[in-house]
């Protein structure tokens, strides 16, 4: 994995769980200014569209964005982030499932206001990357990625409901 050091040269904070492991983030969060040449920065949906919807980009959806805007470009995107303004805003869970059902296989990241206690549900809905700025909460979330050893419903992680798996 490539680790990118931001322009400031400051060490990258460990604030990301990716595929179950705590890793250094190799993407910069969205910012108001257009990213510089070669800068690996997550774009807002508007920025990405203004840039001509480039492939290989990382795009962030707000929970009230329509994911239809991304569907055609999904196979070429490096990363889709869903930004939770409030942890009680459950739209992000449905957005994630829609993106996975549309066949997106790249990194799907949840960021913003999240509780460690949501890690299990977020993972089930298709997020394979979770961002937490607080290191304690990051650790707590990692421990809670699978608080239940089985689940009744099919979802992005396990498409078969329990009734198709019961021994």
């Amino acid at each position: 994995m490539t680790t990118v050091t931001p322009a400031s040269g400051a060490p990258v904070q460990q604030r990301l769980i990716r595929d179950g492991a705590v890793v250094a983030d190799d993407w910069l969060p969205p910012a108001e200014q257009t990213p510089g040449e070669g800068e690996r920065r997550i774009l807002t949906l508007a920025q990405w569209q203004a840039a001509g919807s480039p492939a290989g980009a990382a795009v962030q959806l707000e929970t009230d964005d329509d994911p239809a805007a991304l569907l055609d470009a999904l196979p070429g995107l490096a990363l889709v982030a869903v930004h939770f303004e409030a942890f009680t805003d459950g739209r992000g869970f449905s957005l994630a499932r829609r993106l996975r059902e549309a066949g997106f296989t790249g990194e799907l990241r949840a960021r913003g206001s999240l509780l460690p206690d949501q890690a299990h549900y977020l993972r089930r809905c298709g997020f394979n990357a979770l961002e937490f700025s607080d290191p304690d909460r990051l650790a707590q979330a990692r421990e809670r990625l699978a608080v239940f050893s089985t689940d009744y419903q099919g979802a992005a992680d396990q498409p078969l409901p329990l009734f198709r798996r019961r021994a």
Binding site: G90, F93, Y121, P161, L162
Partner: peptide
């Protein structure tokens, strides 16, 4: 009941 119990997508409805 089984389908809705701990449903990951619908725990934070409006």
């Amino acid at each position: 009941r089984q389908w809705s119990t701990l449903h990951p997508e619908f725990a934070f409805l409006p």
